[in-house]
Design a protein around this nucleic acid. Structure first.
Length: 272
DNA sequence: AGTATCTCCTGCGTGC
DNA sequence: TGCACGCAGGAGATAC
């Protein structure tokens, strides 16, 4: 399940192969993702040059001269570079964007929660992008920002931080992990966070995301990076997926609960 | 405006 | 071996 590190890893993995190349064909095998793919996409892209690939939150923005293709990988989506001569499409390979020189960009998504949208407006002004919170790894995501944003917010900190309008890119895994590292109980009301806790939590969010990017993204289920190699981060998760097991710090049994239909794991002794 | 709930979908693990 | 079931989860849509 792509979280921000996986999306950034994908961006870095695919960009060198296709940046500056011209689209020679587009193959749509399955139109129905989260929203239907515009059938005219073939016409929009064919013979157009891909200028660059940007990222905002978990959205990849493929920049063409006359517009942008917004791609979200949803829960189970992945993008990889293929050789159009030798890589036959497999199940759930819904879209191929084929470039000159037998190189293709293949979109694979078993659960089809992802999206592929064409826009001719400024992509950063697109309604799905415009209201997103700060990038967690940039300097405007600070303890001060989080402290201010959380005032008078009664919802639990864990659900709060996963709201992409507060900060982008902190999905379930990294919410759990960063709360553990920060010693903050996931059920705590956001407005009860102290300024010091915000400072610490922000630093730990940055750290866990940065480490994951360095290592190529968390390996989970069907995620594969842009170059086809899986990441190696899953081995060192402290709490995610470890409910009922011993806390790595104090050996207390980790508690597993549900918050907003999502699994939360924490140590009731270490996290207050 | 803030909060909670519903929704899309397939693959996998579990229990009978 | 097969089937029913629950669960996994990003984030927009919807209701209040």
């Amino acid at each position: 399940m792509p979280e921000l590190p996986e999306v950034e890893t994908t961006r870095q993995g695919i960009t060198p192969h296709i940046k500056g190349k011209q689209v020679s064909a587009v193959i749509l095998r399955h139109h129905q993702l989260r929203w239907p793919i515009d059938s005219q996409l073939v016409d929009y892209l064919t013979r157009k040059k891909l200028l660059n690939i940007h990222r905002r939150g978990k959205y990849l923005l493929l920049e063409f001269v006359h517009g942008h293709l917004l791609i979200h990988l949803g829960m189970s989506g992945s993008l990889r570079i293929i050789n159009t001569k030798t890589d036959a499409p497999q199940k759930h390979d819904h879209v191929d964007i084929i470039f000159s020189g037998n190189i293709g960009l293949r979109y694979h998504d078993p659960r089809r929660f992802g999206s592929i949208l064409w826009t001719t407006e400024d992509p950063f002004n697109h309604k799905l992008i415009r209201k997103l919170g700060p990038e967690p790894l940039l300097e405007d995501f600070t303890g001060e920002y989080l402290f201010k944003a959380s005032r008078k917010r009664k919802k639990d900190v864990k659900t709060f931080i996963m709201d992409s309008h507060i900060v982008v890119g902190v999905g379930n895994i990294y919410a759990n992990e960063s709360l553990f590292t920060s010693g903050i109980r996931p059920t705590k009301a956001a407005e009860k966070l102290t300024r010091k806790q915000c400072d610490l939590w922000v630093e730990n969010i940055k750290a866990v995301l940065q480490r994951s990017i360095t290592q190529g993204g968390t390996t989970l289920r069907d995620f594969v990076g842009g170059d086809g190699k899986p990441g190696y981060f899953a081995q060192q998760l402290n709490v995610y997926g470890r409910g009922g097991e011993a806390c790595v710090t104090c050996r207390h049994i980790l508690k597993e609960i549900r918050q907003a239909q999502r699994t939360t794991v924490y140590c009731s002794r270490c996290q207050k």
